[in-house]
Amino acid sequence: MSELIRGRRAWLEAHPVTADAFMAVLLTVAYLAAVVLQGGNGAPGPDVFSVVLSGVALMSLTARRRMPVGVLAFVMAVCGTLTVMGYDVSAPAVAMLIAIYTVAAHRGMATSLPVGALTLMLFIGLLIAAGADFWPAVSNTVLFVGVWWLGRSLRLRRAYLNELEARARRLERAREADARAARTEERSRIARELHDVVAHHVSVMTVQAGAARRILERDPDAVRDALSTIEQMGRTALGEMRRLVGVLRTEAEPVRGELSPQPGVNDVGELVDHLRETGLQVQLWIEGESRNLSPGVDLAAFRLIQEALTNTLKHAGPQARAWVRIHYADRQLMVEVEDDGRGLAAGLGQNGSRGHGLVGMRERVALYGGDLRIGPRSGGGFEVRARFPLEV
């Protein structure tokens, strides 16, 4: 039953003219029924002129929300005409109260206040012209002002509710925009992680496959070792890809397999050993007292070294050498990766602005408030220098 009532109410709110016409018809029928009953009791009833004019005043309420000021003016004119001619104005007075309520409820203060004040003065004048006593005149005046105030209060309340709904819609859109931005940022982070992991492992696999092809006939044992390294790197790359892409899965699609911990600075030695197996000459120095790093800085430093050595492997040339230096200071962590190869002159500008890997380096270091320098090395080659501030 309540659903039926709410449905009909929503339909009437969507069709205001129909709702107003229905109300006007009900008021007119009630007025005509009162006239008939009054005549049936033997009391003198109004004549046809006053009945028709009062009925037209009530039916004019059909357009009260489309033309509230015009309807109010028409009803006041009917009230004035019937008052001057000595007829009863009960029905037009009801129409007038509804019309003044409509003006206050559907028009702004700039319109409703002067129209209401002017109508109030005319109303008081009609009361005086009709010879109303003092207290009935006061009560009717209070009723008039109360109806206007009720319409104004409901307008303010409706505006307040509309503002709340608009604010809720804006907040919902803002939350959706924040969610989209967060998803975009997460996808960018995953893309950088995938680039760092896959590019490194695929580069090692490519170098090993090329070396195996060249010595296939001469040294089968070395080929077997190279293929083992390729297999190991492939499995590692697949595991990293499953772990990273797994964050995009929903709860209904759980990640299968175990999640390995994120690599850190302590894993740089193993990384260097893998690269040495490809033929790249890499030396590693760790200076200062080792300390526990935050997970973010630990991962960022490892990925930076991994990307820098991968670039050395791909671009420095077959006879290049690389040096990795990790220095623990009291308030900062210094990471340096240098090589004496050809550098990235063919694909990198002086400021090191090209390449997704280099962009990822800059974003990782900037995320933790550090400094990064990427560029040619004095004496030839290329260097990457990064500083990560550490909490004391």
Rank of each mutant, 00 (worst) to 15 (best):
G131P: 01
R64V: 15
V147Y: 03
P114W: 12
L82F: 09
L299V: 07
V197S: 06
G370Q: 05
R155P: 01
G7C: 04
P136G: 00
D330N: 06
R169M: 10
R66P: 00
S188I: 12
L82D: 05
R213K: 10
R387M: 12
R321E: 08
V145M: 14
S90K: 07
Y160R: 13
Q319S: 08
G360N: 15
F123N: 01
T278N: 06
G131S: 07
A63H: 10
L358K: 00
I215K: 12
G352N: 07
A63R: 07
L333M: 10
P92A: 04
V145I: 15
G125N: 06
S294F: 02
L164D: 07
H195G: 06
L259M: 11
Q319A: 10
V35N: 05
E287A: 08
M96G: 07
L333D: 04
G234D: 05
R107M: 12
A346C: 07
D47F: 04
S290D: 07
D267S: 10
M241K: 06
R342M: 01
L143I: 03
V204C: 05
L82K: 05
A177I: 08
M1H: 07
Q262S: 12
T229A: 14
V29G: 02
D196C: 06
A199V: 06
R373L: 12
V359W: 10
D225V: 13
R173A: 13
A19H: 09
R276V: 06
R276H: 07
E231M: 04
D371N: 10
V198R: 01
T141E: 01
V142H: 01
M1K: 03
R187S: 11
L4K: 10
V145Y: 02
E336G: 02
L348I: 03
G381W: 04
Q283C: 07
P114I: 14
L313N: 02
G349F: 03
T102Y: 09
S294N: 11
V29W: 02
A110G: 08
N311E: 05
G347N: 11
E176L: 14
P136C: 09
T81E: 04
A199S: 11
R64K: 09
G40Q: 14
A300G: 00
T119H: 03
S50M: 03
E193P: 00
M361F: 07
L161F: 15
Y328D: 03
L309G: 02
A226Q: 13
R325F: 03
M361E: 09
G357A: 09
E277F: 11
R235M: 05
E287G: 03
H106S: 08
D133R: 08
Q332Y: 10
G257A: 13
T111D: 05
A222S: 15
R243P: 00
L194R: 00
G151L: 05
L227W: 04
S2K: 08
R157H: 14
R243I: 05
R377P: 02
D340I: 06
G375L: 02
R243T: 15
A77D: 01
L27H: 02
G381H: 03
G370H: 04
A19N: 09
A301H: 05
R276N: 04
G86N: 06
V48T: 15
T236H: 15
A316H: 01
